[in-house]
């Protein structure tokens, strides 16, 4: 934890016995060992069940086969191109969605008139299942990058928008009054009061946004493209290659977990000013 001296955990620590840190270490170790055990048992029984033909390896490819397939993919540099494309699509839809959603959220948060006028439209657009826009975007923007980014943006934008709106509306009125008494201009209020307040909401929604951006990119790739992780999975599925589909899923999960880690470290950096919520599990 970055600030052990102020977190509730830190307050308790001095009262705890000297053996506490070691106890928590061994607990951590136990948790990790149990997790590894579960995965090992699961994979081994899957492998064994497949080899004994209790389950059909055609539909449930052996874990070793999946690993082999992944090794095969990574033996050429082609796979990095696919990962790179998906990453680019994710980052672009993420960035555009966040910026547009934040701008929209601030506008509607500060202008009651705009909010009253636009609120129903926002609700209607948000009610559309975004995945279904995928085929339309492929028609409109073609098989390239644009259709993937467009789909991702429509998802991320709303998450950022709702969180920004909330952040702007939840600005503490006393803090706002004080900033006004210190003669803050409208621009200064936006920069030093509204935006940071909204930022805390946006940042806490980053993880969801990143996951959604990946989903938008991959689904759009799946619907029609010539590269990317979604394309790999779609291709494998097209030739009834379950091993390829599973290998693609493993690759995709690893991709998302890696991004998640990045967001985690970004979040703790951006929100240092915030008190640690009580009882937060040790990640």
């Amino acid at each position: 934890m970055p600030q052990p001296d102020t977190s509730p955990m830190g307050m308790i620590a001095p009262e705890a016995s000297a053996g506490a840190p070691r106890a928590s270490w061994s607990r951590k170790g136990k948790v990790r060992a149990t997790q590894v055990g579960i995965v090992a048992v699961f994979l081994v029984s899957w492998e064994v069940a497949g080899r004994l033909a209790w389950i059909d390896p055609f539909f449930f490819p052996l874990p070793t086969a999946i690993v082999e397939r992944l090794a095969e993919w990574f033996s050429t540099s082609e796979i990095w191109g696919d990962i790179g494309i998906t990453l680019l699509e994710t980052v672009l839809s993420f960035a555009i969605g966040i910026v547009a959603g934040t701008a929209l959220g601030i506008w509607l948060g500060l202008s009651a008139f705009a909010a009253d006028v636009l609120q129903p439209f926002v609700k209607v657009f948000n009610a559309i299942p975004r995945i279904l826009l995928g085929p339309i975007f492929v028609l409109w923007f073609g098989l390239g990058l644009a259709s993937k980014v467009a789909l991702g943006v429509t998802i991320v934008l709303f998450i950022a928008f709702f969180n920004t709106l909330q952040g702007v509306r939840e600005v503490n009125p006393v803090v706002l009054a004080n900033a006004r008494l210190l003669k803050a201009s409208r621009l200064a209020l936006l920069r030093h009061v509204y935006l940071p307040s909204a930022a805390s909401w946006i940042v806490s929604s980053l993880r969801v946004s990143v996951g959604m951006a990946v989903m938008g990119a991959v689904v759009a790739e799946y619907l029609g493209s010539s590269a990317g992780l979604g394309h790999i999975i779609a291709q494998a599925e097209g030739v009834m290659d379950a091993t390829g589909v599973f290998a693609g899923l493993v690759l995709l999960s690893t991709f998302v977990v890696t991004l998640d880690r990045l967001v985690d470290s970004l979040e703790s950096r951006l929100l240092v000013w915030r008190p640690m919520p009580a009882g937060e599990p040790d990640a």
């Binding site: 803090v175 900033a179 210190l182 201009s185 030093h192």
Partner: peptide, 21 residues
């Protein structure tokens, strides 16, 4: 009431009016 900006350090809160200027 408490009216400091929670996302600014003590130092930046003291200098807030100057920054606004």
């Amino acid at each position: 009431q408490d009216a400091l900006l929670p996302w600014k350090t003590a130092l930046d809160n003291v200098g807030l009016g100057l920054i606004f200027q």
